[in-house]
C-alpha cells in the first residue's frame, strides 16, 4: 500500500519534505486503486447475496407451484386408477 520506492523525483520535491509529500500523494492515488478493487469485491459479494436471495425466493415460488401440480396429478392418477379396476360385483 505504501511504496517508498516510488517516492521522490517530482517536479517540486527536491528537499526531503517535498519527497515525503509526493509519496503521500502517490499513496492517495494507489489507495484509490486498491479501494476500487476492494469495493469491487464487496460489490461481488453483494451481488452474490442478492442473487442467492432472489433465486431462492423464485425457486420457492416455483416449488410451491410444482407441489400444487403434483397434488393435482395425484388426484388425477387416483381417479384414473379407478377406471382400470374391475367394476365391483
Amino acid at each position: 500500500m505504501f511504496s517508498k520506492n516510488k517516492a521522490g523525483g517530482g517536479k517540486v520535491g527536491a528537499n526531503s519534505e517535498g519527497s515525503a509529500t509526493r509519496t503521500v500523494q502517490k499513496d492517495w492515488e494507489q489507495r484509490d486503486f486498491t479501494q476500487t478493487l476492494q469495493l469491487g469485491l464487496s460489490q461481488l459479494t453483494l451481488f452474490l447475496n442478492q442473487f442467492d436471495a432472489t433465486t431462492r425466493g423464485r425457486l420457492s415460488e416455483l416449488n410451491s407451484k410444482l407441489a400444487k401440480l403434483e397434488r393435482r396429478l395425484e388426484l388425477v392418477e387416483a381417479t384414473l386408477f379407478t377406471v382400470d379396476q374391475e367394476p365391483a360385483q
Binding site: L41, S42, T45, F47, L48, Q50, F51, D52, G57
Partner: peptide
C-alpha cells in the same frame, strides 16, 4: 455490465426480518 445483466434482483417479498448474508466480506 453487471447492472445491465438481464436479471431482476429485487426482493420478491416484503422484509419482516433483519438482513441476512450468506457470504460475508469485510474489507
Amino acid at each position: 455490465q453487471m447492472a445491465a445483466l438481464p436479471i431482476c434482483l429485487d426482493e420478491v417479498q416484503a422484509s419482516l426480518q433483519g438482513p441476512t448474508q450468506r457470504l460475508h466480506y469485510e474489507a
